[in-house]
Write a protein that binds this DNA or RNA. Structure first.
Lengths: 230, 230
DNA sequence: CAACACCTTTCGGAATCCCAATGATTCGCG
DNA sequence: CGCGAATCATTGGGATTCCGAAAGGTGTTG
């Protein structure tokens, strides 16, 4: 699954294509439109994680799109980066004061834009900027204490959460029950090592809900590991 | 009281004076130093709301200061804007990837810098930028001490108000009772952590009035978070 | 000084955890 | 291949921890 959903509003076809290519390579899901009105509809339909907005687009001016996005509750907190050929200071200030999070003037390099997008996302949705732990179709938001598989939220008890976190921090690595008790429970817990089995089972049950493939591998006489197969 | 506390790390005396003047006019409390080492000490002593950091300063390089600020838990989330004469793309990208929130190349106009600072603050600490805080259909007017949900005004006690404000400033983030006591009550309050539960309950009761969906999530053994689901 | 609003502590109930016993699977070896 | 031994999976119940609702306390205001 994509790292983040981006709405790109840009009427210069060549530039748009270039940006789409770059951000897709960065594992973004990019939705592109050239029209301001349509942008608002698209944003409402499926709220994006970030918006790149050209100052001059069809339909509505970029600044008006920005203002309307900010006014609507669902999209009020979506970060917006303005793209423009107008390098005038007054325009830049106006853009920022309208509610844009950043303002980039053409010509710019795609790599710098990627860096700026990352900087904004890091701030707004840390889970989207690499703060999240992922493995295969599993993702864990450590800050929000949330786990998803294939986009669906998975409820976990505290111990299962810590257990999965430990696995996600060392994917593929096999851990003995004793080491898991050390790392996940704490150095001084006098818990039966068989108890680990129980929590492994619960974790499996939770993340394999609905017939998904098991991604926890049992290594006989050694322990357990996170492993999607192959 | 000042709107926000700024730490300015800049060794060009003329530029520093200019910036101090501009930001004081914008009602910032500006603390100025020309030295990287001292900047770190000052930042730890009284955590600023935003840092302006010149790339080349005495003592340590700006980029090193940035990295160390990020590494220290108290200052890890303070927004940083890099100022520099080095306009090279590689430098800009490097600055952003180090954890800077924005990167401004000299020469720049003070007015634009003010606008960029405001844009970053609006994002990170909206309350400091005089902005309304919003999340889903909730909105808080920090200046007028008013909270609405779906347009309807919700009456809140002082503690519930501060609590909600803290959540709105860090949406999605799970906070332990201890951290909430620190952030919302104050560092030196020796209050039972159970008390937090009660205020959470009241907050819930108030904002969910009339059968609205609960947007405060309880994370067992971890704390609470503002979370609209999905 | 009484009424009010707000804050804190207490206590019952529910979610979660740990353990032990039983059943299932895998491995080693003749 | 087949049998025994070892390891793992599963289940249910008792103990524990943790959360939520009501009662009790404190300060403030008119």
């Amino acid at each position: 699954m994509a790292r983040a959903r981006m709405l790109l509003v840009e009427d210069d076809a060549a530039l748009a294509e270039l940006l789409v290519w770059h951000f897709k390579r960065e594992d973004f899901e990019v939705i592109h439109t050239i029209d301001g009105e349509e942008a608002l509809l698209l944003a409402r339909e499926k709220v994006p994680d970030i918006v790149l907005l050209d100052w001059m687009v069809e339909g509505l001016s970029g600044i008006e799109v920005c203002r309307r996005l900010r006014r609507s509750p669902e999209t009020a907190n979506v970060p917006i980066i303005m793209l423009t050929a107008r390098g005038e200071e007054a325009d830049r200030i106006r853009g920022l004061e309208t509610g844009a999070d950043d303002y980039v003037t053409k010509p710019f390099s795609p790599r710098e834009l990627v860096a700026r997008v990352s900087a904004v996302l890091r701030r707004v949705r840390p889970a989207l900027a690499g703060e999240a732990l992922t493995y295969a179709d599993l993702e864990m938001d450590t800050v929000g204490h949330k786990v998803r598989r294939g986009g669906e939220v998975i409820p976990l008890g505290p111990t299962e959460f810590r257990l999965l976190k430990h696995f996600l921090e060392h994917p593929g690595h096999v851990f003995s029950r004793e080491r898991l008790l050390d790392s996940v429970w704490g150095h001084d817990s006098d818990i039966e090592s068989r108890t680990v089995d129980v929590h492994i089972r619960r974790l499996r049950k939770a993340i394999n809900e609905g017939g998904r493939p098991d991604i926890i591998r049992t290594v006989r006489s050694a322990g357990y590991a996170l492993d999607a197969g192959n």
